[in-house]
């Protein structure tokens, strides 16, 4: 095993390349923030940040050449974060949609609602009642 003969030394050239990429991605994310991206604003910013974090973890923290057990420890942490954020989004984005516990499907109910609306008389037809 190569590890018995000392640790992996990352070439200086590679370190320079990585800092170059990181600076470039920082400039890119600032530039893209000036452009109107609509719904893609958050996903694009997160994708760039994740790419940068990936370079730092893999090269600067040398996880690429490290003992696999450290990678699995990080993966467990990342999985927890993913669960926290995605379950929170299920709540904040779809609250109400999921708490429907009446009988029948949502589509059934919408069909009934539309039928009822169709039967609703015109306001002018029932106005005599108010007098």
């Amino acid at each position: 095993m190569s590890q018995d003969h000392g640790h992996h030394i990352i070439p200086v050239k590679m370190l320079y390349a990585v800092i170059g990429v990181l600076v470039f991605l920082t400039v890119l994310t600032v530039a893209l923030a000036q452009v109107e991206l609509g719904v893609f604003e958050v996903p694009v910013a997160l994708a760039i940040a994740l790419t940068k974090a990936g370079f730092v973890v893999m090269i600067f923290m040398a996880l690429k050449w490290d003992n696999r057990v450290n990678a699995s420890i990080l993966a467990v942490g990342a999985l927890c974060v993913l669960i926290f954020i995605s379950f929170i989004l299920i709540d904040t984005e779809f609250r109400g949609d999921l708490s429907n516990t009446t009988e029948g499907t949502i589509m059934d109910q919408q069909r009934v609602e539309q039928a009822m609306e169709g039967r609703e008389p015109e306001r002018s037809d029932i106005s005599f009642n108010r007098q």
Binding site: N67, N70, C80, V81, F84, I85, I88, L89, T92
Partner: peptide
């Protein structure tokens, strides 16, 4: 020693993830 450090880093990630969750809730609302 290094594995111990990675375990500690995961606890740090979890500490910050709580704050990122708060961020997510308020941003989405």
């Amino acid at each position: 020693a290094k594995m111990g450090m990675w375990l500690f880093l995961v606890t740090e990630i979890l500490l910050f993830s709580g704050m990122f969750v708060a961020y997510t809730i308020y941003r989405s609302w």
